[in-house]
Design a protein around this nucleic acid. Structure first.
Length: 466
DNA sequence: TACGGAATTA
DNA sequence: TAATTCCGTA
């Protein structure tokens, strides 16, 4: 609807705020949404609840103080999960994954046509326009649209091509079958004639091939604003984990990339999930193997809904049997729930801890084993270089006061945060940071925010993500 | 108006 | 698993 002029009166991009949009007529939007989803009882209350679920997923956030105004978090959609790739792109410098949309990564949601439910068989995809081998900016976006006039939907063709490319490459390595690959969020790079060019649309195609010209405005605080290394993102290649077509990383680039990613994740308190994981990747060397389970690496992994009451109760009970061991932090705030003790065997925990320590010493991001990856949703990224942070030896207490120790056994207990922050639920930290919300501290004091992890698959997601 | 827990649905 | 539905709270 944001793409269509006909809906401008009910929903439109907010001027001056990149990625922000206003629902001008909530009831109508809800009605249209309900029609589309065959939910005639849909209303704005329900619709907005759905939108609020995107908060935790870092896809959307609310613009405070503006009614019916929301904003996309684009780096969640783009940077962390799918480094934009230009294999053999002309220069030595690999194509950067745009932490913010740039001319080389113009995004377009596929057209949402409320009247033709079949037109959105692939809703919400993003396509790495730079999947193309030659692909600098001139070869994607609207420019390529002209090259594919016969296609009824260039965008679909494009992302399909990307997927095909992925699958064909992965077939060699036998690891990346895309049948399991869930194309969660791919934003095709093409627009349609019917879409109105909206200068405020983050998906707008710039009339100037080489210049997006749409990004000189503030973006989500979740985005990397630092124009230097934090925006850096080398191209690991389409399928760096396949054996025969292994893409060679420049280790330095990769380190640089991982570091900047870590910085972004850390600085913005993003979900560790946003930290890109390259299974088997050592920095250096690179292992070019990949477990089939890893095929979803680059797809956007959305956060499962918070644990329901049952899970929380379970966690609560386990809390009693597995008391908090807050050796490195001071007083435990009231009623903060913790994850149950990890079910990993002690040896593997120790192993992970050793690995973590090693990486500390080397100043690198911890490399992650495939085995670890299998059971791990996210690892807390290595914090950016931080002066005078005493090295920790968590081996005695691998299970720190962590809401997600189960999934992040390598979590750094001494992450360079203020103790106060460390004690605060991540969600609050994020919130406070974003909104500078004085309320947060108060709420935390009151134990207002409880959290536990564990979605249906036992992932410590809610807390970790928060 | 907004938020988020909980249960339910598809 | 992404909503949908309901609802208490702020």
């Amino acid at each position: 609807m944001l793409q269509k002029e006909e809906f401008r009166h009910v929903i439109a991009w907010q001027q001056g705020e990149y990625g922000e949009f206003v629902i001008k007529d909530p009831d109508e939007v809800a009605r249209l949404w309900g029609r589309r989803k065959c939910k005639p009882q849909m209303n704005y209350d329900k619709l907005s609840r759905a939108l609020r679920y995107y908060y935790n997923k870092r896809i959307l956030h609310k613009t405070k103080g503006k009614r019916f105004t929301y904003k996309f978090n684009f780096n969640k959609l783009v940077m962390p999960n799918y480094p934009f790739i230009n294999i053999r792109s002309s220069g030595v410098v690999p194509q950067s994954a745009p932490p913010v949309p740039t001319a080389s990564s113009r995004f377009h949601f596929p057209p949402l046509d409320a009247h033709s439910p079949t037109s959105d068989v692939q809703p919400g995809r993003f396509s790495a326009g730079s999947l193309t081998a030659s692909g600098q900016e001139s070869s994607n976006g609207a420019d390529r649209k002209a090259e594919l006039p016969e296609l009824e939907d260039g965008s679909a063709a494009d992302w399909r091509r990307g997927v095909d490319l992925l699958s064909s490459r992965s077939a060699v390595g036998g690891g990346l079958g895309h049948q399991k690959r869930k194309p969660d969020i791919m934003l095709p790079l093409f627009t349609r004639p019917g879409m109105y060019p909206d200068p405020h649309s983050p998906f707008a195609v710039s009339p100037l091939p080489g210049r997006g010209g749409v990004l000189n405005v503030p973006i989500s605080p979740a985005l990397s604003l630092t124009p230097t290394i934090f925006s850096y993102s080398p191209s690991p290649g389409l399928s760096p984990f396949t054996s025969s077509s292994c893409f060679s990383f420049n280790p330095e680039e990769m380190k640089h990339y991982l570091h900047s990613q870590a910085c972004s994740v850390f600085n913005y308190h993003l979900s560790p999930r946003t930290f890109p994981r390259y299974p088997g990747l050592m920095v250096p060397p690179l292992q070019c193997q990949m477990h089939p389970e890893e095929s979803a690496q680059f797809s956007i992994k959305l956060q499962p809904p918070p644990a329901g009451r049952k899970n929380r109760e379970r966690v609560e009970s386990s809390e009693e049997s597995a008391p908090v061991t807050a050796t490195t932090v001071a007083p435990v705030p009231p009623r903060i729930k913790v994850e149950p003790a990890s079910d990993k065997d002690p040896e593997s925990l120790r192993q992970l801890v050793r690995e973590e320590e090693r990486s500390h010493e080397e100043g690198t991001v911890p490399s992650r084993t495939i085995e670890e990856e299998k059971g791990t949703v996210f690892a807390r990224p290595a914090a950016p270089v931080w002066p005078s942070v005493p090295a920790s030896t968590p081996s005695e207490e691998p299970l720190e006061v962590t809401e997600d120790s189960e999934d992040r056994p390598g979590k750094e207990p001494n992450a360079p945060e203020k103790k106060e922050d460390a004690l605060m639920p991540p969600k609050l930290r994020l919130k406070r940071r974003w909104n500078d919300d004085p309320e947060a501290r108060e709420l935390s004091k009151n134990g207002k925010f409880l959290w536990s992890g564990s979605g249906p698959r036992g992932l410590a997601t809610a807390a970790a993500d928060a």
